[in-house]
Design a protein around this nucleic acid. Structure first.
Length: 342
DNA sequence: CATACGTGGCA
DNA sequence: TTGCCAAGTAT
């Protein structure tokens, strides 16, 4: 695109953003010129990784109320933080969040780095998050490329290369639009446009401030972009969750290993989850009764989790039912709820 | 470059 | 019902 057109496109999108920016709790209020708190920007960006705004928002409110600064977060107990993250998914984010907060508190005196390169060194901060925090919190002209930006750029330039192979090309094209003027607003304008106007399905081209520059719009089939390669079907696995209650109605939980699926989270005792018949080995001998099954879908497989219930004792983390429900990842919440129906 | 890693909403 | 999609990162 010619430099003069880039300038017009940028101006049109920034004007649109001034009029239509979404009000979100991690943004400065409309009209304010206050600097945004890098801690809140970072926290919101981590929560928003592969996660919708409506899902992340209540978590953001609870986290910032409970841990107002990065140093407060750094001082949190691991179990408290993991429980607060329960239900948000991608639990490696929570482990990295704590590691990152402690690094910033210990090695950077509680102050986030103000450069992209410095941010990139932190745990759980990759190319996207480093660029986003640098742009939004420190006015750095960083090339912020997330799924929204990829889609907007793929349409703007009618990129025929399918994702994920197109990623380097889309990144280069997005970079060609970055300038020193209002870097944080530019990044958020592109992402807002992508989520509200240049949507994956049924893009609202009539509402789009840059449709005049859009090659996909000119083809008449803007929603054909970005072109994607088809994904393989998920395998289906089966397993059993063992719900053991003591005489006081408390539930037996285990802490899962730090690595792997639901790593570091509390869970119900469970055997292997396999594509064949489920692992029937109970964790202890007891009078187990069948409580049916729950269905759950993970990123790379789906699961039928059978639920079996018994009363007993043993070397577990015993938690009251309500506390267990609050701290468990969703798949085990479903199983625990199911166990009470039987 | 491929794979592992959650969850909920939507058509 | 099924598949796709959402402000990605680590290995």
């Amino acid at each position: 695109m010619r430099p003069a057109d880039i300038a017009k496109l940028r101006s049109a999108l920034l004007d649109w953003y001034d009029a239509h920016a979404r009000a979100l709790p991690w943004r400065r209020p409309p009209g304010s010129t206050d600097r945004v708190d890098p801690y809140r920007v970072w926290l919101s960006e981590v929560m928003l990784q592969q996660t919708t705004v409506p899902h992340a928002t209540p978590y953001f409110e609870r986290f910032t109320a409970r841990w107002p600064t990065v140093s407060d977060l750094a001082a949190a107990e691991d179990g408290d933080l993991m429980a607060a993250w329960a239900g948000l998914g991608y639990y490696a984010r929570a482990r990295n969040l704590l590691a990152c907060a402690r690094t910033v508190a210990r090695d950077h005196q509680g102050v986030f780095p103000d450069t992209e390169a410095g941010l990139l060194e932190l745990p759980g901060v990759g190319a996207y998050t480093a660029a986003a925090v640098a742009a939004i919190a420190s006015d750095r002209p960083a090339n912020v490329v997330d799924g929204n930006v990829e889609r907007v750029v793929a349409r703007l330039f009618a990129v025929e290369t399918p994702l994920p192979a197109a990623r380097p090309e889309l990144r280069r094209l997005a970079g060609s639009l970055v300038a020193d003027d209002r870097p944080g607003d530019w990044a958020q304008a592109l992402m807002d446009l992508g989520s509200t106007v240049c949507r994956p399905r049924w893009p609202l081209c009539l509402m789009c401030p840059i449709s005049g520059f859009c090659a996909a719009r000119a083809t008449g089939e803007p929603d054909r972009y970005p072109v994607k390669t088809k994904k393989a079907a998920k395998p289906h696995r089966r397993g059993i969750a063992w719900v053991l209650r003591d005489a006081g109605g408390r539930v037996a939980l285990v802490r899962r290993p730090d690595k792997g699926l639901l790593g570091g989270m509390l869970g119900l005792p469970t055997g292997d989850w396999r594509e064949g018949p489920p692992d029937e080995t109970p964790p202890i001998e007891a009078g187990w009764t069948d409580a049916g099954a729950v269905e759950h879908v993970f990123t790379h497989f789906s699961l039928t989790l059978w639920v079996r219930v018994a009363e007993g004792a043993g070397d577990y983390l015993w938690r009251p039912e309500a506390e267990a429900l609050a701290a468990l990842p969703t798949v085990f919440r479903k199983a625990l709820v199911r166990s009470g129906i039987a």
